[in-house]
Design a protein around this nucleic acid. Structure first.
Lengths: 237, 237
DNA sequence: GCAAAAGTGTTAACTGTACACCCATGT
DNA sequence: ACATGGGTGTACAGTTAACACTTTTGC
C-alpha cells in the first residue's frame, strides 16, 4: 500500500542516529548501571544512559567507546557488545532519533572517577529514566544474565584475581539470586574458565581456611557451553 | 580527541538508515535466502538482500515488513526478529548508510510468487554479494542455528502439519548436518513443542509404516530450553 | 513372507544440584 | 579446643545420543 518506493539516492530521509551504552558494574552487592543526569530538555534532570550522536566516518562501536571515554576511564571497560537498535519514532519527543544500544561491563574493583552529574545507579531500584532507557537497561540485564550462564563473560565483571567466594558474590549479584560457591567453582572449572594463581587470601580475623585465588583463563568472550542440544556427541580429548 | 561534543540539536549529522531482511526458507534440502538483483550502481547486477530506507514515522520493524511485502506475500513470514546493526562508514560506497538487519523465516511449503529479479539463493553456494550482505547472511545463519537448539523456532520453517521425517529433513538442512529423527522427536516432545494431529501420512509405494502427523503447539517464539546453568533446580509439576 | 519406513525401549555418558564431610586458619 | 569459612567427595536427578528392537504398512 505505501505509495512509492522512493529509493532515489538524493531525496531519502535522514535521521539523527546515536549510540548508547549500558555499562554495568557490580559493587557492594548491587548491580549498578552508569547513568548521567540530563542537563537540558527533553527530560531535563532525569537520569539517562550515556549516549551521543554518531560522527561522520565513525562506526557505532567507536561512537559508544568515545561517549564512554569522555565519562569514565575507557581502559576499564572489559567487554563491549552490541545489544539492539530502537527506532520508535516517538522515543525522543524532541526529534526523531534512532539509537543503537551497547552492553558494557566494568570490573568490580575499577572505580573510575565520575563527574558530578554521573553516577552508578542500583538496577534494583532504578528511578524513572529518560526516553526508553529503562527498558533498554532491562534488555541489557537479560542479555548479561543469559551470557553468564553459557559464556565466560564473568571475566569482565570480576577483578583480575579473586577467591571463589568473591566470584560467587559477583555472580549472585549480577544474576539477582543466590548461587552456591561449591557448584559455581565446579561448573566454571569443568569448563576450563578458571585457573589458580597459586596465591591465597588471608582469612579475616574471625578465622577460617585461607581461600585460594583464581583468575579467568581468557579475557575475551568465549561461548563455553554451546547450545548442546541436537548436536552430535563429538567427544574431543 | 574528536574536537567537539557537537550535540546541539540543530547541527547534528544525519544518515540514511535502512532496514534489511534476511529471509530464509528450507526447500529441496537447501537453506535458501531471499535475494534481489540490483538494478543500479553500486553493485549493479549483484545479488543483495531486500532492503530500503526507513520512512519518517516508521519503525525499523515496520520498514522491513514493508520492504518484504513489496517482494513476497507478507502473510507467509512466520517469524521476524532484529539481528544487528551495521555501521561501517564504507559499507555503502555511494553514501553512508547505517543498516539494521532482521532475520525472517518462511515455512518450507510456502512458495510465494517472486518477480523476475528476485530469487531464493542456496546459502551453501552463495555468489559474491553486494555490500556487506554476505557476512550479514552468515550472522543470520548462526542466529537461526542457535535458536533451533534452544527455542521452538522450528515452527517458522515447518509446514503447518508434518511427519517427524519431514521435520528431521528441515532441521538437518537448516543446521547443515544430519540429525536423527528418533532423537529429534524425543527432544521436541519432551519440551512440549509438538502435538499429534491424529492424522497419518500414507507411506510411499515402497511400503513402510504410515507416519503420524504433528504440528507445533505454539506458533510464537518461545525459549524452551533456557540456559540451564547456575540455576536452582526449581522443580515445577 | 519380506522389504521398508516409523516409532519405542534401553543404555551409557555427561551435566549440574544438593549435601555431607574434611581442611586450614585465628583466637 | 573450637569456631569459621574454604574446599572436596559423593549421591542423585535430568538430559541426550546411540542403537537395538518392535510395529505397521505395500508388494
Amino acid at each position: 500500500m505505501p505509495p512509492a518506493q522512493n529509493d532515489r539516492h538524493s531525496q531519502v530521509a535522514r535521521y539523527r542516529h546515536e549510540a548508547l551504552g549500558v555499562v554495568f558494574r557490580v559493587s557492594d552487592h548491587a548491580l549498578s548501571v552508569l547513568c548521567w543526569q540530563r542537563l537540558r530538555e527533553p527530560f531535563e534532570g532525569a537520569w539517562a544512559l550515556p549516549s551521543g550522536p554518531v560522527g561522520p566516518g565513525e562506526t557505532l562501536g567507536a561512537c559508544v567507546a568515545r561517549q564512554l571515554a569522555s565519562r569514565v576511564d575507557i581502559t576499564k571497560i572489559a567487554h563491549l557488545e552490541q545489544l539492539e537498535t530502537r527506532s520508535d519514532p516517538d522515543r525522543d519527543p524532541s526529534q526523531r532519533t534512532i539509537a543503537t544500544a551497547y552492553l558494557g561491563l566494568v570490573p568490580s574493583t575499577a572505580d573510575p572517577h565520575l563527574p558530578k552529574s554521573a553516577n552508578w545507579l542500583n538496577t534494583t531500584h532504578l528511578p524513572a529514566m529518560a526516553f526508553d532507557h529503562a527498558s533498554i537497561v532491562q534488555s541489557a540485564i537479560e542479555r548479561l544474565r543469559s551470557k553468564l550462564s553459557y559464556s565466560n563473560i564473568g571475566f569482565a565483571l570480576a577483578p583480575p584475581e579473586f577467591t571463589i567466594a568473591q566470584l560467587r558474590d559477583i555472580y549472585a549479584t549480577a544474576l539477582g539470586r543466590d548461587i552456591s560457591a561449591t557448584n559455581l567453582q565446579r561448573v566454571l572449572q569443568r569448563r576450563g574458565q578458571l585457573e589458580p594463581t597459586g596465591a591465597t587470601a588471608h582469612p579475616s580475623s574471625a578465622g577460617g581456611r585461607p581461600a585460594a585465588r583464581f583468575r579467568f583463563r581468557h579475557t575475551q568472550l568465549e561461548i563455553t557451553d554451546p547450545f548442546a542440544v541436537l548436536r552430535p556427541a563429538d567427544r574431543q580429548t
